[in-house]
Write a protein that binds this DNA or RNA. Structure first.
Length: 422
RNA sequence: GGAGACUUGUCCGAGUGGUUGAAGGAGCACGCCUGGAAAGUGUGUAUAGGGGAAACUCUAUCAAGGGUUCGAAUCCCUUAGUCUCCGCCA
């Protein structure tokens, strides 16, 4: 959520930046500014009135203490009169504030100056492409064939148990998942991230905190009877760990990592995008999250990009890094880098990580703050990235490393998997 | 799931209708003391929002929400959470 006083002070800039994000309702900014003015005016009125009544009530207390009952009675009448007045203006204030909040929460985050103008994924800027695309043998097949051949993942059984998009990992397929999770977590904790295992369901407040609500309501599985949501990413519970907390400045940056399954309804997806492991409703992911000093957050973003990049290099996967254009960025992000790995048999780039700086957009909602040297509380910047999402990593590992006789795994996985190949 | 007790500031903890935003302690910060530290000592130490150039000031907040009252941390209702006992259970 954008900060009101920022909007107030940068009306034109906010409008201009929101067009970069292709936000449709620019007029909302003017409505917000006008509502904000009304709210503040009415607030002064209401609070002045309240202060008067409070003062009289206090007097009554003193008079009662001194046994001056009659004088107290007189004043009691005065307060009774003011009460109906204040009730009206309090109600009006409440409704105005609600309107204001409802408008502000609909505004997406403002994109960073470096965000490319553009609307579709084609407008994303390719920052760099690293690693050679492998030359596969003549009989190479996509991963959905490989997982059948080596009996690693069973989609049909998943359909029986839950529905399409819920793969069942089996045997060496299951073990490889576990190996990847373990390797990623070890890699992250070695870089100073503290490991967490959060709940896989969250309440409404938590989902609001990171911005999934109200923006992505339809993308999350909702457990109606208990008012809970299945997490679409570890970002949601883990960032909320620090909700309503004030950390010491020297405790920044806070670095956290977590492995969780992620649940996404992916309503509206179809075609080759959802083939095999390319897009599923439940998948495993290891996430890294940082809460940073506002002045350092873009350094931190670069650091996180380098962190994910080295992880991909260790897996010997060809990858490219994209800076997302305004139209392709998420609601909450100020700057996002996407990582895509090349999956050689289906000849497709697959997104495996998204590293973003949210600046104060999330921390303003969650009230994650630190005390600066002057003793003032300030909002932190929050950032997160995947390191990494498993199914697409698995897909490209299988496709890129297939030979006529088996699949060779990168060296870093051997100790975790207990073998060099499948 | 049933019954009961409880929920106060960073923490511990007092407070059952009237200058209580809240005693007392601990912690923390700064100063004094010290060669340095500890101890001692003095002062300060919530958050959000509004007004004001500033000093400062106002409003709200004692789990959350609602109610009673001129006035609520204190009384009533609802919800959530914690603990104890019972039940169920990996």
């Amino acid at each position: 959520m954008l900060q009101l006083n920022y909007i107030r002070q940068h009306v034109d800039l906010v409008k201009e930046r929101l067009t970069v994000k292709h936000f449709a309702d620019i007029a909302a900014v003017d409505r917000i500014v006008s509502l904000d003015e009304q709210v503040r005016r009415l607030k002064v009125e209401t609070e002045t009135l309240q202060a008067e009544l409070n003062a009289v009530s206090k007097e009554i207390g003193m008079l009662m203490g001194q046994g001056k009952k009659e004088e107290a009675e007189q004043r009691r009448a005065v307060v009774s009169e003011g009460k109906s007045k204040i009730q009206r203006s309090t109600e009006q204030l409440g409704s105005l504030e609600k309107q204001l909040y409802d408008e502000v929460i609909q505004l997406p985050n403002i994109p960073h100056v470096s965000v490319p103008v553009g609307k579709t994924p084609e407008d994303n800027v390719n920052i760099r492409e690293v690693g050679a695309k492998p030359d596969l043998h003549a009989n190479a097949v996509p991963h959905w064939e490989l997982i059948k051949k080596y009996d690693l993942v069973n989609f049909e059984t998943g359909v029986k148990l839950a529905g399409s998009g819920f793969p069942v990992f089996k045997g060496r397929g299951a073990k490889l998942q576990r190996a990847l999770v373990q390797y990623f977590l070890d890699y992250n904790t070695a870089a100073g991230y503290t490991e967490y295992m959060p709940p896989l369901v969250v309440n409404e407040t938590t989902a609001y905190g990171t911005g999934q609500l109200p923006d992505k309501e339809g993308q999350m599985y909702h457990i109606g009877v208990d008012g809970l949501y299945l997490i679409p990413t570890a970002e949601v519970p883990v960032t909320n760990i620090y909700r309503d907390e004030i950390v010491k400045e020297n405790e920044l940056p806070v670095k956290m990592t977590a492995y969780t399954p992620c649940f996404r309804r992916e309503a509206g997806s179809f075609g080759s995008d959802v083939r095999g492991l390319n897009r599923v409703h439940q998948f495993d992911k290891v996430e890294v999250i940082q809460l940073s000093h506002p002045e350092k957050s873009y350094e931190v973003l670069e650091e996180m990009v380098a962190h994910v990049e080295q992880l991909l290099q260790s897996l010997n996967l060809p990858y490219r890094i994209l800076r997302l254009c305004g139209g392709d960025m998420s609601f909450t992000s100020a700057l996002t880098y996407d990582f895509e790995v090349y999956s050689a048999a289906q000849k497709k780039w697959l997104e495996v990580s998204s590293v973003s700086n949210f600046e104060t957009f999330q921390s303003n909602r969650m009230k994650i703050r630190y005390k600066d040297a002057a003793g003032k509380t300030q909002l932190v910047h929050s950032l997160n990235g995947s390191s990494l999402a498993l199914p697409r990593i698995l897909a490209s590992l299988l496709e890129n490393n297939q030979t006529e006789t088996g699949i060779n795994l990168p060296a870093v996985l051997h100790p975790y998997f207990g073998a060099a190949s499948i």
